[in-house]
């Protein structure tokens, strides 16, 4: 695969997999408003994924379409960061996963709007507006849970501890990012990190949470080495398509 196709798929897959996770929660959130919110955030991510897959389709020598990218690839071919495939867990874990993703996507998309690649610039100019809205919502939940009751504080603290190493995978960079960043196409994740760190520090301070000082990051997602959870997510997501390949209705 060309570096650009790899780069586009990495971001398409982040959005698709988190959309699938959020979709799992529809009709099981604690109240109606959160149920609608989780569906809407998931829909935004699905829409962003489709825009990236559309572009990937044009870059792909085999011209695979969006369904083929989403439904015909296996675990080792998915290039999402391991954060987004982590299970929903409890409400605190779902919101913390979302917050860490949002805190990364806002500065990522902001930087991508300046890409020399007009297509990436257009997709991200659209997506950044949605990501900002997501971040406002997830930040509010992190603060509410962290500064809430002893039970909610304990749960969100556990979510931080569990998810932090996977958040590090968002900042993985290899010659794909480095080469494309040098030519003004991609965003070097290292340039996104200071904003991510500042957002986390800011929100965690309001939430009475401490930022983990363990620098360990569980890398691998961007090159197809996933946690076991993706292996359970994909069969559920793909079963209908694989039973009826190419069906339309």
């Amino acid at each position: 695969m060309s570096p650009l196709l790899t780069y586009v798929l990495r971001h398409a897959d982040d959005n698709l997999i988190v959309a699938q996770r959020l979709g799992e929660l529809i009709a099981s959130m604690p109240d109606l408003e959160e149920d609608i919110a989780v569906a809407n955030v998931g829909l935004d991510h699905l829409g962003q994924a489709r825009h990236f897959y559309d572009y990937a389709s044009e870059l792909d020598p085999d011209s695979r379409d969006e369904d083929q990218f989403a439904m015909e690839r296996s675990e080792r071919e998915f290039l999402n960061a391991t954060l987004v495939e982590q299970p929903n867990g409890d409400f605190a874990q779902t919101q913390m996963r979302q917050f860490l993703l949002d805190a990364y996507q806002v500065p990522l998309y902001e930087a991508m709007t300046a890409s020399d690649d007009a297509r990436l610039a257009a997709i991200s100019a659209k997506a950044v507006k949605e990501a900002r809205y997501h971040l406002e919502r997830s930040s509010a939940w992190v603060v509410r849970l962290g500064a809430g009751t002893p039970v909610s504080h304990e749960k969100i603290s556990q979510a931080v501890e569990y998810l932090w190493p996977y958040a590090g995978d968002l900042f993985y960079a290899d010659d794909v990012e480095e080469g494309l960043a040098a030519s003004g196409v991609a965003v070097d994740p290292a340039t996104v990190r200071p904003t991510f760190d500042a957002t986390v520090a800011d929100v965690f301070a309001s939430a009475n949470l401490s930022v983990p000082d363990d620098p360990y990051a569980r890398m691998g997602g961007r090159t197809g080495f996933h946690t076991e959870h993706l292996g359970h997510l994909l069969p559920e997501m793909q079963s209908l398509y694989r039973a009826h390949p190419g069906a339309t209705w």
């Binding site: 408003e33 609608i36 919110a37 569906a39 809407n40 809205y133 406002e136 919502r137």
Partner: peptide
Amino acid sequence: ELSRFSSTACKSL
């Protein structure tokens, strides 16, 4: 504001 999202993605309640 009751909810940041409403009947469609473009509305809040």
